[in-house]
């Protein structure tokens, strides 16, 4: 298979397969969690679990009173990375072109310089959290192989994308193949690693809010 043939495969069937694995895997993961169920609560409720659950889903997205430097760092670096990654993914003109070729849908792109900034910010935030993971005794103790594996899987599409845009390192076609494959691996990994938190975070927050809300407490 030539480089161009490989590129055609990863852009076509490769991407379709990884998307299918992502969607099916994530659906399975969410259904598996849901069907584990939980016991019916026979105590008389004081508040609405639904309303409190929804509120907790929202309020946990922000700083909370009494937060320490560790907390501020987590929230700020988390937002920087996630926003940097999502903006780069959704508003880079060549990504939009790819979406358009698939779905017919398109939207305005951001200027290349802005995309470079969002990608660099995303990478910088990832580097910061990695350094902190080693430097902070609490985070270091908690960390396992998936924390590091997921870091690598997440940083690769951003780094290879930047190299590609600025034509650094490998020939363009080879680098494009590497870039697309790195994204496809990330897609497939999401349902099968802790990266699945991008979806389950809403379930966890809802349960937290619902459990407290049943007792009339907004958590």
């Amino acid at each position: 298979m030539t480089g161009v043939e490989l590129l055609i495969w990863v852009r076509g069937p490769g991407l379709q397969l990884s998307l299918a694995a992502f969607i099916l895997g994530m659906t399975y993961r969410i259904l598996q969690t849901y069907f584990l169920g939980r016991a019916k609560n026979l105590a008389e409720p004081r508040g609405s679990p639904w309303i409190h659950g929804m509120k907790t889903m929202w309020w946990r997205s922000f700083f909370h009173p009494g937060m320490t430097i560790r907390g501020y760092f987590t929230i700020i670096s988390g937002y920087t990375f996630h926003l940097g990654f999502i903006i780069t993914l959704l508003f880079f003109d060549q990504h939009i072109e790819l979406f358009k070729s698939w779905t017919g849908l398109s939207w305005p792109a951001l200027p290349p310089l802005v995309i470079t900034v969002t990608a660099v910010l995303g990478i910088a935030a990832l580097v910061a959290v990695l350094v902190d993971r080693f430097a902070d005794p609490v985070r270091y103790l908690l960390s396992d192989y998936q924390d590091y594996l997921c870091w690598v899987l997440t940083v690769l599409p951003l780094v290879t994308g930047l190299l590609l845009v600025y034509k650094i390192w490998l020939p363009y076609t080879s680098l494009l193949v590497v870039h697309i494959i790195s994204f496809e691996i990330l897609l497939v990994a999401i349902p099968f690693t802790k990266l699945s938190h991008v979806f389950t975070i809403f379930i966890a927050r809802w349960y937290n809010g619902a459990i407290a809300g049943y007792k009339g407490v907004q958590s």
Partner: peptide
């Protein structure tokens, strides 16, 4: 291990907060 427990462990990002 019920649905809340599974969702909590799945979602934990080991931030240490």
């Amino acid at each position: 291990i019920d649905a809340p427990v599974a969702s909590f462990f799945t979602t934990c990002v080991h931030c240490g907060m």
